[in-house]
């Protein structure tokens, strides 16, 4: 028996919007730790890891570890039917081949049940080693989204370089090239508007903008994004989910042949 009640049901709606274009089918794992997902895109270039900790749910019952295979587009369709202020409960019986999403309006005057078929998905859980990053950039998530969108109208790849000067996002394409430099800026009143750069070593890596743009669909989940870079390692683009956990996107770099 599994029953997870999330008062902020719109978090789950936002999570689905953030991952459904990157990953088609995925197993959601439920354990005493929380509700999680790890999945790669079909080209095995990017990986998404989601964790919603059990403490973040108003009610969390998970009698045994379960893995539920879901088509993310279908799940998103169902969650779109929940109101933004609705309380969402995820329910599944042991051994059942369906999952039920229950939506309750805040004043309890409307209750809806949406039952979705589960699927068998063969997926490998990859071991993600702990890494020391050469540079960690924390910036407003809307700013990062804007940069990725702007640069993708010029080129297909982005070079992210971190030096003492700041973080530089560069692209080049047939019509020309573009560079956006963001400097550390902690003087603004609101911490969510600041940019901080923690650099141990300068680093410069190239990534496909198509994936970066896909990651920015998680922007509504968090006002800030953390970009962790190390040469020869996938970049980690992390959006913290307040009081609940995180969504992390890992993207393999492009390298010179």
């Amino acid at each position: 028996m599994l029953e997870l009640r999330l008062v902020q049901g719109n978090l789950l709606k936002k999570v689905l919007e953030a991952v459904k274009d990157l990953v088609t089918d995925a197993n959601f794992d439920c354990s005493s730790t929380g509700f999680s997902l790890q999945a790669m895109d079909s080209s095995h270039v990017a990986l998404v890891a989601l964790l919603l900790r059990s403490e973040g749910f108003e009610h969390y019952r998970c009698d045994r570890n379960v893995s539920m295979g879901m088509n993310l587009n279908n799940m998103a369709k169902m969650l779109k039917c929940a109101g933004n202020d609705d309380i969402v409960t995820i329910k599944a019986d042991d051994g059942s081949d369906t999952v039920t999403f229950m939506f309750e309006s805040p004043n309890q005057d409307k209750i809806a049940d949406f039952e979705m078929k589960l699927m068998d998905i063969d997926s490998e859980h990859l071991g993600i080693p702990e890494a020391e990053y050469h540079a960690i950039v924390r910036m407003p998530s809307s700013e990062f989204a804007r940069i990725c969108k702007d640069l993708s109208s010029i080129g297909d790849t982005v070079v992210i370089s971190v030096t003492k000067e700041g973080v530089k996002f560069s692209t080049r394409g047939d019509i020309g090239n573009a560079n956006v430099v963001c400097r550390q800026n902690t003087t603004v009143d609101k911490p969510e508007e600041s940019t901080t750069i923690e650099m141990h070593e300068p680093v410069s890596l190239t990534f496909a903008l198509r994936y970066m743009n896909s990651f920015t669909k998680a922007t509504p989940l968090s006002s800030t994004v953390t970009i962790s870079l190390s040469s020869e390692l996938p970049v980690v683009v992390e959006y913290k989910i307040a009081e609940m956990g995180y969504i992390r996107f890992y993207l393999a770099p492009k390298i010179e042949d």
Binding site: A46, L126, I128, T206, I255
Partner: peptide, 14 residues
């Protein structure tokens, strides 16, 4: 020429 690395070349399969 640039080549796209796979995420599988960084993270271990179980």
């Amino acid at each position: 020429m640039q080549r796209q690395k796979s995420i599988l070349s960084f993270f271990q399969r179980p």
